[in-house]
Nucleic acid binder design. Structure first.
Lengths: 196, 196
DNA sequence: GGTGAAACGGACCGTGGTCCGGTTTCATTC
DNA sequence: GAATGAAACCGGACCACGGTCCGTTTCACC
């Protein structure tokens, strides 16, 4: 029997039933979302499908937003992996400008694809510390590589802000903009910002 | 007795009791918000203070968001008036660039000031058709005056997006940016976009 | 198998939102 | 200026769902 060494990132140690329940809950949530849509699933339904009590759901995920954020996390992780170690131009190896534009296009499509889930995740979701951090850091890094002068942290935020779900939704639904126009206009914005 | 001519903007005619109740509800909401904060007031409390039933609140304002949006509307109207007919540089008379920068600064401060209310108003609030329309139209107009080429509708949105409450909150609370830095960085963004 | 800590579950609560029978208001008519 | 009828409004009981609480059960370790 292996002795459990207390490593650096040794979290408070998740019990086996807890881990099983978390997996069951995530799977239940995912399948229910696929069936009924994000908006019309209830926490009680998720708990029932996972075969646990409602209290357990809130113990694991804090809130509805927390659960949604956890579900969202899977695809978001894949996206991060594509950036960190995927193929160019999204991944490393391409010119910074190409990477930046590729990033924007991917982000737009992803945000539109998961907009219901992202909205439901609210502040716990892509806006959460880790996700914002990663996304913002990546854009900041690319802006740095491009030799952009000025308040890079704010400029990164400014480039990302129009890609956020509420704004994208407004463009698509109220202004009747379509995807090609948005991506093209965003490219133009990037070039203006980079050109300085 | 004056004959009621069917004017162009003749709405379905609000009954006197309905008007009275709407005023009472708005006043009640405003005072309750001032006392307890936006987050902790309930629709029932607003109804009680206004001396009406809960059903009436929802009849008049559709939803919690709708009520918040209605409360917000007052200061928002004043802001619009300041732009349309106030003194420069916010109002007409100044150079377009000065007006644009003044607009941004005012918008930032207003969004931070009313952030709780704006968030509570959600999609029914400053994001609503009329408000977005006005704000976006004004920025588009100024960009046009400045001779900016390109997709002006998108560029206006892109300039406005980083001023939205969730992003502003993120900057202030997580990134620890302070107001002067934000306004200065936004000015820089504007100049880059206008310079093309 | 004993023990303490952690997780479980479902009854319970508060609040946003709906519904519908009763009431008020207002234009019209006399 | 009183009667009238119908549309609009009112109110509070009611519902659904997110979130909490706490007695009970399970787990990991000894």
């Amino acid at each position: 029997m292996p002795i459990r060494l207390p490593l650096v990132e040794d979290e408070p140690q998740e019990r086996r039933d807890a881990a099983r329940n978390r997996e069951a809950l995530l799977a239940a949530a995912q399948s229910l979302i696929a069936e009924c849509g994000v908006g019309s699933i209830t926490m009680e339904a998720v708990a029932a499908r996972a075969g646990v009590g409602k209290g357990t759901v809130f113990r694991r995920f804090e809130s509805r937003e927390g659960l949604m954020a956890a579900v969202l996390d899977r695809s978001e992780t894949a996206f991060q992996a594509a950036i960190l170690s995927g193929s160019p131009p999204l991944g490393p190896g391409a010119e910074p400008m190409d990477r930046l534009l590729a990033f924007g296009h991917a982000r737009i499509e992803l945000n539109l694809l998961h907009r219901a889930l992202i909205s439901a995740a609210g502040r716990a979701g892509s806006r959460s510390y880790a996700a914002v951090s990663f996304t913002a850091m990546h854009v900041r890094y690319l802006l740095g590589e491009l030799g952009v002068r000025g308040d890079i942290a704010f400029l990164a935020t400014a480039l990302l802000a129009p890609l956020e779900v509420p704004i994208l939704e407004q463009q698509v639904e109220i202004e009747s903009m379509h995807l090609p126009r948005i991506t093209q206009a965003w490219d133009d914005l990037v070039r203006r910002v980079v050109a300085g």
